[in-house]
Design a protein around this nucleic acid. Structure first.
Lengths: 209, 209
DNA sequence: CTGCGAGTTGATTGAACATTCAACTCACTG
DNA sequence: CAGTGAGTTGAATGTTCAATCAACTCGCAG
């Protein structure tokens, strides 16, 4: 029962924080969702903040099984994996009517003076994401220019996603997300083409009006 | 005194919401900052939410005098204006130790179930930003490919900024923002070069490792 | 079978907070 | 100068919420 209770708390908090945000989620909400009494929660966690820490640790440690493996199912091409991941977020937006986007991003902007532990974990989560995409871009080898800063490109991928999610959640339309991703894809295509001189078009051009 | 009091409330709330977020700013905070009593605030605003509405209206109506005019001071070139605006946000990050980024973005991600008036105003604020950048890109005329979707590129500019701000605020470092913007700039350079066949390099290349 | 303690229960506490309100000020009008 | 009402005052109200705590359960070690 012990580990089970703790897990239920973390899982419920994960869902609630993603849905309602951290501040707007009350301990009572978590208790109800996890079917737990307040004393049990405070047996495992000194306070609400520490629940958040556990949630962020779970995201950080679960990036492969929870995020990347599903997003990359059946996709082997390293560059396609970048866009498969973006498609994964698009699916989330679509199935939640543009309500639920990136839980880490929401929390990152919601907390204005986060305590160090929380900030570091947010940082670690972003780092994990960027690391994974950077690895894809490194795996793409000479399909991309040799002198390309692949970590910076991975950072732009994250920005594209987070910015697109922000826009789409606000407009309740996918167009903001789609526009941003389409242009990012055009950029990557151009990078690819710049290394393979354009014999014919290597891939259907996507980003034009 | 009447309009003055209202303005002081809106101005104080604007600062506080940007600094501490909406939920974490109490009415008492606003009252203290504006030097006003609660009754006065509730004389002008039915509730806290309506203060937020007034703040978002102020941002929307102030985009030119408050944001674009300062950012574009001395910059006439339409494409350079895009990057001048991004530099403006960078300056904000730098002067606040990567604490204060884009107030609209913070609020947009903080509120998970915003009431319609608030959501529409957030949308209008993003739209104003994208409109302004789209106009720059239209003003760039044939320096960019004729078939380029300039609104989509403006959307990517916004995403780059918002995503970069999110990263930099989290890491308390400018590198995330800088990396994202540097790659975006490389993309725009390549778009320019694709229309002017590369006689020599038109502008010093920037984005390589 | 005893005793320990990890885990659980849920009522209680106290603080923070948005909002209300009745009384007050005072510039302006008729 | 009496009357009106927009604007102001700040104490009071009621609610929400994180956190506490003393009492309880129960598996297990000795």
């Amino acid at each position: 029962m012990a580990a089970d209770t703790r897990d239920r708390i973390v899982f419920s908090a994960m869902t609630l924080f993603a849905t309602k945000g951290f501040a707007s989620t009350s301990i009572a909400d978590i208790l109800a969702a996890a079917n737990v009494n307040s004393g049990s929660l405070y047996h495992f966690f000194p306070g609400k903040q520490d629940v958040l820490v556990a949630v962020l640790e779970a995201y950080r440690d679960g990036i492969h099984p929870q995020l990347l493996d599903p997003a990359w199912k059946g996709v082997r091409d390293p560059i396609e994996r970048v866009f498969a991941l973006l498609r994964h977020y698009r699916r989330h937006l679509r199935t939640t009517e543009c309500t639920y986007g990136c839980p880490i991003g929401s929390i990152a902007l919601e907390l204005h003076e986060p305590d160090p532990a929380v900030r570091q974990l947010l940082s670690a989560n972003f780092k994990g994401w960027i690391d994974a995409i950077e690895q894809c871009l490194l795996d793409a080898g000479d399909r991309l220019p040799a002198d390309l800063d692949r970590r910076a490109l991975a950072t732009l991928a994250l920005s594209t996603m987070e910015g697109g999610v922000m826009l789409s959640r606000t407009d309740r339309t996918l167009t903001g997300f789609d526009d941003a991703v389409r242009m990012f894809r055009d950029y990557v295509s151009r990078l690819e083409e710049s290394v393979t001189p354009p014999r014919r078009a290597r891939r259907a051009r996507v980003a034009r009006a």
